[in-house]
């Protein structure tokens, strides 16, 4: 079964039509890259899956956005619970003004978990999962702002994973990072794939080619082409895709 799906999704910011009739199905435990020039709607599309666009006033959605067979925009859906199923990693590292430990524990605490031992174990395993443990194990009580940008971003990934979502949404997670940190995050994405369904928005063609199984190319609010990454990058069906990935526009 498809993990994530959108059926005839249209999205409007006020009067501007940001997403036009998007139909897409994403399989579980795969990495899907959303590519396209700035303003093409790929971030907007990503944010549909945890209803982050609800925070923006004067927006409108038609169509169905489906996770595990359930339309997440139907009436009676508890948005807070929905967001527990989907972790999100943002463009810039945005740790909370709290200690390293508390950053990762935050998701557990706001979801009502108070068992100290459980929280400690979960924090440790999650930080180990993002391969940050050796770097921070002696300073868990220190402010998260003391970490480097790359470390902060991995911490933010750990924070998103601590509540054990089944989907991780990444909005240009490496755009603010140096090459070494970027490759660390990419390795991580590769490992996480076995447990999570990952959707990643990226501006970096090589990154999309390296990390993803499937790629979707967006242009001016339309889904131009969707397919296996290898095929999109070597033999796209649509000429616009070809032009974009070879750098002729965008």
């Amino acid at each position: 079964m498809n993990k994530l799906e959108s059926k005839q999704v249209n999205f409007y910011y006020g009067s501007s039509h940001a997403l036009k009739d998007i139909n897409l199905a994403i399989e579980a435990n795969t990495v899907t890259a959303l590519i396209g020039p700035s303003g093409c709607g790929k971030s907007t599309y990503l944010r549909l899956f945890n209803r982050m666009n609800d925070l923006i006033s004067d927006t409108r959605l038609t169509g169905e956005v489906i996770i595990d067979g359930v339309n997440i925009y139907k009436k009676g859906i508890n948005v807070d619970n929905l967001r527990k199923m989907t972790g999100m990693v943002f463009q810039k590292p945005n740790p909370f003004p709290k200690s390293i430990f508390e950053n990762v524990a935050y998701g557990l605490r706001v979801n009502g978990i108070t068992d100290k031992k459980f929280i400690e174990e979960r924090v440790e395993t999650t930080i180990k999962q993002v391969v940050l443990w050796d770097e921070v194990k002696d300073k868990l009580k220190k402010s998260a702002f003391e970490l480097s940008g790359g470390q902060q971003q991995r911490l933010c990934i750990a924070r998103a994973m601590a509540i054990q979502p089944s989907v991780i949404l990444m909005d240009e997670p490496t755009s603010a990072l140096d090459p070494i940190s970027t490759s660390k995050v990419e390795e991580l994405i590769h490992e996480l794939k076995t447990k999570y369904t990952i959707v990643i928005v990226t501006h970096n063609m090589q990154q999309a080619a390296r990390v993803s199984d499937h790629t979707a190319f967006f242009y001016l609010g339309e889904l131009v082409e969707y397919g296996v990454t290898k095929q999109i990058f070597t033999n796209p069906n649509v000429e616009r895709t070809q032009n974009y990935i070879t750098g002729r526009f965008g």
Binding site: M52, D80, G87, M88, Q91, V110, R159
Partner: peptide
Amino acid sequence: PRAMKEASLALGASKWQTIYKI
């Protein structure tokens, strides 16, 4: 920062939790 509030909400925190914890 908006991103910080969004990060909190994305973790399933309610609006009020986000206000008093972040």
